[in-house]
Amino acid sequence: MNDYIAAADRDILVRHGLDSFDALWALRLEAVDEPNTGRGGWSSVFRLDLGDAAYYLKRQSNFLSRSLLRPFGEPTFAREFRNIQRYQALGVPALQAAFFGTRLVEGERRAILVSRALDGWRELVGWLERWPALTTEQCSDIIAAVARLARRLHDAGQVHGCFYPKHVFLREAGTGFEACLIDLEKTRPLLLGRRDRIKDLETLVRRADDWGEAEVRELLAGYLQRPGDSAEVNGWLARVASRRRNKERNQ
């Protein structure tokens, strides 16, 4: 079975003897959190430091997702890896895969996904925790970066499907910020127009507790590339608020 190894990471993995599925599966590391034991199997995440290069190594066994195209299931990493490649092809900023492979071992369906660590980046959750201490300029730059990311994603015809602040990473770049996405398993094509777009945006702002109407309006203005007091922004703001009320009422 052919495994995927990114050209930029091959030499590093070869140098450390980690350019094969078996070597990465056997590697002993301490998990960064408790294993996920849903879906009838398990899935774990490990930090992997190889000199100046840093990665996250994810391993799973019988941790499957099912769909109409794959009724018998496939490792969730397989879907995430396809989406990582799709994002890269579409030019949507996201985590980068270094290695991917699957194996069937005596009926056990194993998968490995290695991605480059986003060292130097901070998830939006971390920025929100510091929100009151940030300058007005920093806040606006962060909102602008998130708006650009969301627009780029949707213009590429994709819905993230899990657009939480913990899945948006930012870092300072020049005079502003740049943003990228992680956790792409639930990504799907954007099929329902504005409804799909609002679904992603509402998911984000509902969990951005430090953002009030002014910040949400600023986000939508940047996303729509329209003045903050425009009728179009007002309309989207009303739709986001309506969806939020419905979600909170049904919780």
Results as ranks from 00 to 15, higher is better:
residue 77 F to R: 05
residue 106 E to R: 14
residue 62 N to Q: 02
residue 246 N to A: 14
residue 211 W to G: 07
residue 198 I to C: 08
residue 113 L to A: 02
residue 97 A to H: 09
residue 86 R to S: 12
residue 29 L to V: 06
residue 164 Y to I: 07
residue 183 D to F: 01
residue 227 P to S: 10
residue 145 A to F: 03
residue 201 L to V: 06
residue 251 Q to S: 12
residue 75 P to H: 00
residue 36 N to G: 05
residue 173 A to G: 15
residue 104 L to A: 08
residue 233 V to T: 02
residue 75 P to C: 04
residue 96 Q to C: 13
residue 236 W to C: 03
residue 179 A to E: 09
residue 245 R to P: 00
residue 89 A to I: 01
residue 57 L to T: 07
residue 173 A to P: 09
residue 181 L to V: 04
residue 136 T to F: 15
residue 10 R to P: 01
residue 182 I to M: 04
residue 246 N to D: 15
residue 148 R to T: 14
residue 66 R to Q: 05
residue 89 A to D: 13
residue 240 V to E: 06
residue 155 D to N: 14
residue 110 R to E: 13
residue 49 D to T: 11
residue 110 R to H: 12
residue 206 R to C: 09
residue 238 A to D: 05
residue 242 S to T: 12
residue 235 G to A: 04
residue 124 L to T: 04
residue 76 T to G: 09
residue 77 F to K: 02
residue 109 R to T: 09
residue 132 P to V: 07
residue 229 D to K: 13
residue 23 A to G: 10
residue 30 E to D: 14
residue 204 L to D: 04
residue 50 L to A: 14
residue 166 K to Q: 14
residue 90 L to W: 06
residue 19 D to V: 06
residue 222 G to M: 05
residue 152 R to F: 10
residue 240 V to G: 01
residue 165 P to E: 10
residue 183 D to W: 01
residue 242 S to Q: 14
residue 136 T to K: 15
residue 77 F to Y: 15
residue 160 H to S: 08
residue 12 I to N: 14
residue 105 V to C: 10
residue 84 I to Q: 06
residue 179 A to L: 05
residue 250 N to G: 12
